[in-house]
């Protein structure tokens, strides 16, 4: 999640949200396919359309599309494979949301609020009513 979150950052996580926070927020959640505690950015929220394969995926009322900030090129340059996020495990239901990371309290030089960042820019937005999921 560089540069927003660096390895070793200490984060305050607001555990109260019962809905997915707004797009661009950084969230802590349980991964759908492994139960591991993970941190990603909300790229798209309930009702949004996400470009998928040759069409769109329409997120349900309780689902979000969570993405890594790092691109596949960036992780490859660091010697890793592709980022593991919704492109791997699909939409994430709100049941798996643990909380919203909103403040970094360590290390000292990086203390501060975690500002909402980029989100999926193209092709994401509220879906037209009546469209089925693809």
């Amino acid at each position: 999640m560089r540069p927003a979150i660096e390895p070793g950052d200490w984060l305050l996580v607001d555990p109260t949200p019962i809905h997915w926070p707004r797009r661009g927020s950084i969230v802590v959640f349980r991964e759908p396919d492994g139960d591991a505690l993970a941190v990603k950015r909300v790229a798209a929220g309930p009702g949004d359309r996400v470009p998928f394969a040759d069409g769109y995926l329409e997120l349900a009322d309780d689902e979000a599309w969570l993405m890594s900030d790092a691109s596949a090129e960036l992780t490859a340059a660091a010697g890793f494979g592709e980022p593991i996020d919704s492109r791997r495990y699909g939409p994430v239901p709100v049941d798996l949301l643990v909380g919203r990371a909103w403040f970094r309290y360590a290390p000292f030089r990086r203390i501060g609020r975690i500002a909402p960042g980029p989100r999926l820019s193209d092709g994401v937005g509220p879906a037209a009513r009546g469209n089925g999921r693809v």
């Binding site: 591991a36 993970a38 890793f80």
Partner: peptide, 15 residues
């Protein structure tokens, strides 16, 4: 006392 109690990961594949 201040240290986080849980660690969240933003991992990638490691093929």
């Amino acid at each position: 006392w201040l240290a986080p109690t849980a660690t969240a990961r933003a991992h990638c594949d490691l093929p």
